[in-house]
Amino acid sequence: MPHDHHDHDHGHGHGHAHHSHEGMSPSGHPYRADQDAPLTDAQALEIAVRELLVEKGIVTEAQIAEAIARMDARSPAMGAKVVARAWTDPAYKARLLADGSAAARELGADIDALKLVVVENDAATHNVIVCTLCSCYPRTLLGLPPDWYKQRAYRSRVVIEPRRVLSEFGLDLPDEVAVRVHDSTADMRYLVLPARPQGTEGWSEERLAALVDRDSMIGVAVPRLPAGDEAAAAG
């Protein structure tokens, strides 16, 4: 589909050496090489609005840089830490399900005013998150959403044919598992607490957290053991 194509077909490769002064993002990846592409209307607007807000004393360049750094620091790793703690500490899990935001803050998550509802997968229930009206997402906990989460295909279809959409992600749910879709229509944001995989008894929180990826906390995937571990668990 034509929307949300973020590249402008300007034909420039990444990493032109003479633009290296622009620096790397905090995650260590280069920013996309926009510096030598023709200035777009949106980019001009961003520069103009930013400079006006700075001139009028509403924001400073330092505050903008800090806001970017805070957002860049957020990633699914924080959510995975929350999940792993819930898997290993029943009292924490109870607190997480009762008040997701408070429980996330317990682990040091920098989540601003996030109002988090955690929904739990088990042998009988699979939860999946969407925002049909825009693209609400627990960004202060998980970082920015993937592109597909914001696009028409996911937003339109997952509420009417969730099983078919999940199968496009490679997740085929057994018939006996009920699907519970959550549409983030208002002030809450959602996190799926996946089921802990079999064969992980005695694992450390760090090792468990490594099994939990972004998609499993949106509910379009489930955590799985690496192939070697799976064989060991089966044996």
């Binding site: 509420v159 969730p162 099983r163 699907v179 879709v181 549409d183 229509t185 208002a186």
Partner: peptide, 18 residues
């Protein structure tokens, strides 16, 4: 929600409504 068009009638959907 979907009547006969439902993929699985007993699946559910939660939404926040004022």
């Amino acid at each position: 929600i979907w009547g006969d068009a439902a993929e699985r009638p007993d699946d559910t959907l939660d939404a926040e409504i004022y």
